[in-house]
Nucleic acid binder design. Sequence first.
DNA 1: CAGTGGTCTAGACCACATC
DNA 2: ATGTGGTCTAGACCACTGT
Lengths: 240, 240
Amino acid sequence: MLKYREIENILKKRIQNETYPAGSLFPKQNDLAKEFNTSRVTIRKALDHLIQIGLIYPQRGAGTFVRSTANELSHFETDVDQYIGTTKLLGDKHLVESKVINFEIRYPSEKEIAALTIETGDLIYDIKRLRIVDHDPYALEYTIMPVNIIPKIDKTILGGSVYAYIEEVLRQKIGSAYRRISAAKPTEDDKKYLSCKSDDPVLKVNQIVSLESNIPFEFSETHHRFDKESISVYLPGNRR
Amino acid sequence: MLKYREIENILKKRIQNETYPAGSLFPKQNDLAKEFNTSRVTIRKALDHLIQIGLIYPQRGAGTFVRSTANELSHFETDVDQYIGTTKLLGDKHLVESKVINFEIRYPSEKEIAALTIETGDLIYDIKRLRIVDHDPYALEYTIMPVNIIPKIDKTILGGSVYAYIEEVLRQKIGSAYRRISAAKPTEDDKKYLSCKSDDPVLKVNQIVSLESNIPFEFSETHHRFDKESISVYLPGNRR
DNA sequence: CAGTGGTCTAGACCACATC
DNA sequence: ATGTGGTCTAGACCACTGT
């Protein structure tokens, strides 16, 4: 375990524990350096991410403070896989199921070749899944993945978490993601599977997800019921 | 000007210039340190933000590379004020106008007191504006701001850019923002001002924006026509 | 003024990828 | 084996805030 990541996690727990209550003064960087027996540079690196996700904010000259909204924000993790994997995001407190509506292997279109930076002859999976949370339809996913990058996908894996398969079986780490969020009218599929009425909007998320090695592996579109999902984004101003 | 910020800007320009073409090997950290006559730590700090916005990606052992999508991404700046200010975001290439539909000063509700962390007796502006881009309705904004933090707002300012007023006249810098994005059915106002039909969804953005000094100054809800706006988010995986 | 966070240095060692 | 990026150190000085 990296030292700065370890310290970051300990400090995060202390904020959640209210060892450092919301709104209070956070320990000085020099004190933390002493406590963890490290240099101030390492402490600063540990604080970087806590600042970025808005749990604490530094005020030059004055000190560092715990944000008053720290407890509301602390659930909202910034690790990419938590944004991305439905199972991981909801699996603790809810029953997450997947119903595979369609699953085939085919050659990619021009658009798909460009999005996944693959070759014309490379096969892809074409998957349509309904995600079900606590027995209610939650989201409809259309996903394309290259066969040679994510081998041996089958209906059993699709019934659970593809992300868990990638991380635990293939031993690959999820890297970055690029998302585009919009609102749309419901499609026939949305009406059928998400029980949308004709005037119920859907929240549409198009994304390209890459492995840590920067190889794109997922090109997908997800439709969420408008009354079941919203997306939070924190835009930090103080980049350091 | 800060050294690392200066280097960051120079490197960014070189990527846009294609001095470092998309997909190519980016200079080594040690070479950059020599070129800019600084330490590697400072170079790393300059690279941090370029990595975060996805222009380059480091591969340990191999080197750092310019992302193949660098040119598509370079327009999409990550400074918070560019995410937030419609005028700044679109003003270069488009005609941005504002029609003030409602403007009053009143006492805040419980919810507004909590969101802006103000006192019961503090007055707020209550603003409803239609943003018009190239003569077409673009978005409907409901904004609350504390009078004592953003003084002397009037209809002239509201006809233009509030963010420009804050930065140029009040000499305050925009800090962080917290946004929640969702889809919704159109309201009566949406139908009236955005010309939405009954089954046209809207993209709804609720946000709290703070100054650099961490004082919240805007609590707003914006309705976008579903066919005119989508929101992009880049989720970097490699946080360092 | 003292104390805080912000920037910067000039090294060192490690993990990893390529050869 | 070499060279890359990733982590870490033990200092230093500056900018800013509070009193």
